[in-house]
């Protein structure tokens, strides 16, 4: 098997092709390393405006949340809201049951009131 007999086109595609895939994904890596920084900068600026008369802007580390921290906050909120009771009237009553008069259910005309000969 003579490896040198392989056409130059094959070598070109093999090496250049892989390099292009690398370049494409490296480009994406660069962009996605940059995007959070831009978002952070914008958030910082917005926070700066809001907190100008309140206090200092939170540190960069405080602005970064891991998934675990998010999960912990969500769980705490869930438990908190789960604990809260609804507003209740505190009046315990038995509901009054009213039956409207109807000749169909009238006891006056029941079978027991018929004057059958005994």
């Amino acid at each position: 098997m003579n490896l040198l007999a392989i056409s130059s086109e094959t070598w070109t595609i093999t090496i250049l092709g892989w390099l292009i895939v690398f370049a494409a994904l490296l480009f994406l890596v660069g962009i996605f390393l940059l995007i959070p920084k831009i978002i952070k900068l914008a958030t910082k600026r917005a926070l700066h405006k809001k907190t100008r008369h309140v206090g200092s802007v939170p540190a960069e580390d405080e602005m970064m949340l891991t998934g675990e921290m998010n999960a912990a906050i969500s769980m705490a909120l869930y438990l908190y809201f789960d604990e809260i009771h609804d507003d209740e009237s505190n009046i315990i009553t038995i509901k009054e049951v009213k039956r409207r008069y109807s000749p169909w259910s009238s006891k006056l005309y029941g079978m027991n009131n018929m004057n059958f000969p005994r």
Partner: peptide, 13 residues
């Protein structure tokens, strides 16, 4: 993401 590019060596090999 670079690891995804590295594994594509299989295609070109």
């Amino acid at each position: 993401m670079i690891l995804g590019a590295a594994a594509q060596v299989g295609i070109f090999a």
